[in-house]
Nucleic acid binder design. Structure first.
Lengths: 146, 146
DNA sequence: GTGTATGCAAACAATTTGCACGGAC
DNA sequence: GTCCGTGCAAATTGTTTGCATACAC
């Protein structure tokens, strides 16, 4: 179930991307930012702030809630994290490599991913029909095991 | 743009439905519950609790926040209201007559509705592929005028 | 008369913010 | 040495809850 573990090449890649992003934006290269990034990519999969803080603690890194929120905000801007609101609390997932997908939220909280090309077709139809420019979308499927 | 005004037949219909629901559930037939229902159906369209309370005030009916939340909860159970979480605050819309549709959230907050049969096809595919039973779904399209 | 619904305010949960200290530069 | 980022705690926002009163039954 665990989405496998640390892909060293991926970790290196996202670390570099964060470094560039921080440099470009004039942000500082603090250790907290990199530890958070690594923890997110080390395990992969979806998480909320509570779970992330718990994982940080187990890793032996103490990062405050405020810093977690700040850092996630930064990672969102950097495209290294994506944000979702399936239920009450916000959930996040690694944002790289960027791959379009949607979500199935199981009644036990588990989250599956899928990708169906028909969604792009629907979006094309909508753009034409309504004369709009679609910025993004979210398809949430709520289901249970049969 | 305003989704036209009070359809007397519809108002009558939902009032009766609420009456039955309250009777069946052993709930009381309070005036607040009917005023809220009527205000929701009088205008139609999407709204959040703040907006609804404002509309109640303009109508001359003072209903507390707690009662609004309580009443909406009841109307949800009765199938007379639907709940969404497009952004921060919860939004609601009349739930009757029941018609399957999804939403386009414009960058100015406006909400459009649409229905595309391909979504049902996607759901069928997913049920088969993942061996799940889909309970419901939400497709949110975020867009701006072109 | 009984007991549920309302209204108010306090309580809550998730997130944001203010401020003093510490560390990246 | 600057001043941004962190950590802590207080503030905010949306929503829920506790409790006394009011009214549907």
């Amino acid at each position: 179930m665990a989405e496998s573990t640390a892909n060293p090449a991926l970790l290196e890649e996202v670390r570099e991307r964060l470094e560039s992003f921080l440099a470009d934006g004039g942000h500082r290269k603090t250790p907290e930012r990199f530890v958070v990034l690594e923890e997110i990519y080390a395990r992969g999969g979806h998480f909320d702030v509570d779970a992330l803080q718990e994982r940080m603690k187990q890793r032996g890194a103490k990062v405050s809630r405020a810093t977690l929120y700040n850092t996630i905000e930064l990672l969102l801007e950097a495209g290294l994290v994506r944000k979702h609101r399936f239920g009450e609390q916000s959930q996040y997932e690694p944002g790289y490599p960027s791959r379009q997908h949607d979500h199935i939220i199981m009644d036990n909280g588990e989250v599956l991913e899928f990708c169906d090309p028909r969604i792009q077709q629907i979006k094309a139809t909508l753009e034409e029909h309504f004369g709009i420019e679609i910025l993004h979308h979210a398809l949430h499927i709520y289901a249970r095991k049969k």
